[in-house]
Lab assay of single mutants.
Amino acid sequence: MGFKLLSKLLVYLTASIMAIASPLAFSVDSSGEYPTVSEIPVGEVRLYQIADGVWSHIATQSFDGAVYPSNGLIVRDGDELLLIDTAWGAKNTAALLAEIEKQIGLPVTRAVSTHFHDDRVGGVDVLRAAGVATYASPSTRRLAEVEGNEIPTHSLEGLSSSGDAVRFGPVELFYPGAAHSTDNLIVYVPSASVLYGGCAIYELSRTSAGNVADADLAEWPTSIERIQQHYPEAQFVIPGHGLPGGLDLLKHTTNVVKAHTNRSVVE
């Protein structure tokens, strides 16, 4: 069995187990497998329904001669939608809004960016022009300005110390501490036991640490421990890039980060 097929099978099995364990909360999309990078042309966006009122959005972007996937989250909030992270750029984010209108038909009224990198804030200006209120932590807003990236308009308070959590509509926002970046936030959907790890969490097929220019490698494993301790009931975990899975993604990420750190020390 090929690795790609095995990865998709694991996603399907995880979703099936969740649907059985929580039949009222989960209505997993039966329309197909989780979209992969090879299936999404740059400039297009796919939506994948995880649970009743919960979707991931998947886009792709060219970077350094390669094409990478990027995940975000959409959560229903009454007759409105909360968006977590842009679709990595203005063109993708405009396509995301169009796809949401086509498939869901509810307005996106608020959006949260989970850290300051372009795959999370690139497209904020498109959201703002569409009347979406954009939010991020003060740290993310400051770092985005320093980096020359787009800056969300509103500040999220109460997320300055490791372990801080605040309720934001249908989700809980959690600051686990520094990891992929010093400002990275985690998003949890309690009604569906869905954990969105953003770039602080890796997919299972990833074996290298990737972009760690703004990471705190020493603190990252401790931050992941905080996530595990705060959300032990999480059933569906979405990484910032690639295929979702279960809580095993947290341990896998820790292993990859520690291996990278150990290699760096040896070198």
Rank of each mutant, 00 (worst) to 15 (best):
K8D: 15
A192G: 08
G89R: 12
S161G: 11
A90T: 07
V112A: 13
D125G: 09
H115K: 00
T253L: 01
R128G: 08
A133F: 13
T261R: 08
L247Y: 06
T114F: 00
M18P: 03
Y231A: 06
I20M: 10
I104D: 00
S193V: 07
G2D: 15
V67W: 10
L83E: 12
L13V: 13
S56M: 15
A25N: 02
G148Q: 12
I201V: 09
N71F: 00
V187R: 00
I186P: 00
C199I: 00
V112D: 01
K4W: 09
P244A: 07
V256C: 13
L24M: 14
H230L: 04
T14M: 15
A94R: 10
G169Q: 07
N71T: 13
S113W: 02
G131H: 03
T93G: 04
S208D: 12
G158C: 08
L82Y: 05
V126I: 06
F168M: 09
S30A: 10
W55F: 13
W55T: 12
H117Y: 00
L9A: 08
S193K: 14
G177S: 01
R206E: 07
V166R: 04
A129M: 09
Q103D: 07
S38I: 09
P35S: 05
E101D: 04
Q49S: 12
T36N: 04
G89T: 10
G240Y: 02
A218L: 12
S161V: 08
V126S: 08
V166H: 02
S7C: 03
N255V: 13
D119Y: 00
T60C: 09
L97K: 04
V146L: 09
P152N: 04
R226S: 12
L106K: 08
A129I: 04
A234P: 15
K258A: 08
L159I: 05
L81C: 14
S162T: 04
V194S: 08
L159A: 05
S56C: 12
G78K: 14
G43K: 06
G122S: 07
G210F: 15
I74N: 01
I238T: 13
S22T: 14
V132Y: 02
G163R: 08
P138N: 15
A259R: 05
V265E: 12
V171K: 00
I238Q: 08
D29C: 08
Y188I: 09
G53K: 03
E203S: 08
P190A: 06
V121P: 02
G53Y: 04
E150Q: 12
L96E: 02
P239Y: 00
V108F: 08
V126P: 05
I151F: 14
D183G: 05
S113T: 08
E39M: 11
N255Y: 15
E80L: 14
V112F: 12
L185S: 03
S264D: 08
S30C: 12
Q228E: 13
A111I: 05
A192F: 09
S30E: 09
Q61F: 11
F63T: 02
N255A: 15
H117V: 00
L159T: 05
V45T: 06
Y202S: 08
L250R: 02
T140Y: 02
M1R: 11
S7D: 10
T134H: 15
P152H: 09
F174G: 02
T254V: 10
F116E: 03
G72I: 00
G148E: 07
N255M: 08
E44N: 15
R76E: 09
I17R: 04
Y188D: 02
